[in-house]
Computed example of a mutant assay.
Amino acid sequence: MAGFVTVLCVLLGLANLPFVSSRFLGVFSVRGSKQGRLLTAEVLVCFVLSLGVAILVERFVEGVSYRQGWEFYTVLTCLFVVLGFPGFVRRFFWTVPT
Rank of each mutant, 00 (worst) to 15 (best):
Leu56Ser: 10
Glu58Asp: 15
Thr95Lys: 14
Arg31His: 09
Arg23Phe: 13
Glu62Thr: 12
Gly84Cys: 06
Tyr73Ser: 08
Gly87His: 00
Arg37Ser: 15
Ala15Leu: 01
Phe80Gly: 00
Ser22Thr: 13
Leu39Gln: 10
Val53Asn: 06
Val89Lys: 07
Ser50Leu: 02
Phe47Met: 10
Ala41Cys: 09
Arg31Ser: 09
Phe85Glu: 03
Ser29Met: 03
Gly84Arg: 00
Phe24Ser: 06
Leu44Asp: 06
Val89Thr: 09
Ser50Glu: 04
Phe85Gln: 06
Leu14Trp: 01
Phe60Ala: 10
Leu17Tyr: 01
Ser50Val: 01
Pro97Lys: 14
Gly87Thr: 00
Val57Ile: 11
Pro97Gly: 14
Trp94Ser: 09
Arg59Leu: 11
Gly13Glu: 05
Pro18Ala: 05
Val53Lys: 03
Leu76Ile: 08
Leu51Ala: 10
Glu58Trp: 02
Leu83Thr: 01
Val5Thr: 13
Gly87Lys: 01
Val27Cys: 12
Arg67Thr: 12
Phe72Arg: 01
Glu58Asn: 13
Leu25Ala: 13
Glu42Tyr: 08
Leu44Gly: 10
Glu58Lys: 04
Cys9Glu: 07
Cys9Trp: 11
Thr6Tyr: 13
Arg59Thr: 10
Cys9Met: 14
Met1Gln: 10
Leu39Ser: 07
Phe4Val: 07
Phe72Tyr: 13
Trp70Gln: 12
Leu14Asn: 00
Ser21Ile: 02
Leu38Ser: 07
Phe4His: 07
Thr77Ala: 15
Val10Leu: 14
Leu8His: 09
Trp70Ala: 15
Phe24Ile: 03
Ile55Leu: 12
Ser22Cys: 10
Thr95Pro: 00
Cys46Gly: 05
Val82Asp: 01
Phe88Lys: 02
Leu17Thr: 01
